[in-house]
Amino acid sequence: MAEKKDKTTIILFSGDLDKAMAAFIIANGAAAYDQEVTMFFTFWGLNALRKEEHVPVQKGFLEKMFGWMMPRGANKLGLSKMNMAGLGPKMIKNVMKKHNALTLPQLIEMAKEQGVKLVACTMTMDLLGITKEELIDGVELGGVAAYLGDATEGKVNLFI
């Protein structure tokens, strides 16, 4: 199979656990379809890529505030519905374990393993005060042109 691979692109705008899971499940499925998959993370979606631990970096007061208020990492995201101040995610993680579904951190690992390209949007990183050091390893940086470059060749382009 030497022909050019189909492409799939997914924009993750949302920082909700359920939506991020959907995005990564589709990304992993597309990678299993032998497609070249690129995921772009912008605005609240960037939080899914944050490292769980605090990374000491120099930044302004507002940026620091943002950092404190937003979920730090894939394991801290809330649900888009029935979040119930954090109770919802706990319950759904329990149910997922029962059904042998992969957790979001596992889905992200699997995506990286399958060669899914993860691109963080630099403009929104600046807005939210997120630096590259605070993101998990293996993430590339890019902007709208990088996204469109892949999306114009993509057969499936999703905005989540």
């Binding site: 499940i25 992993n28 499925g29 990678a31 299993a32 379809y33 032998d34 059904h99 042998n100 579904a101 992969l102 699997m110 399958q114």
Partner: peptide, 13 residues
């Protein structure tokens, strides 16, 4: 067996 979506397809590939 026991694996949930998307794992069966990922493993099959």
């Amino acid at each position: 067996k026991g694996l949930a979506c998307p794992m069966p397809i990922v493993r099959t590939k």
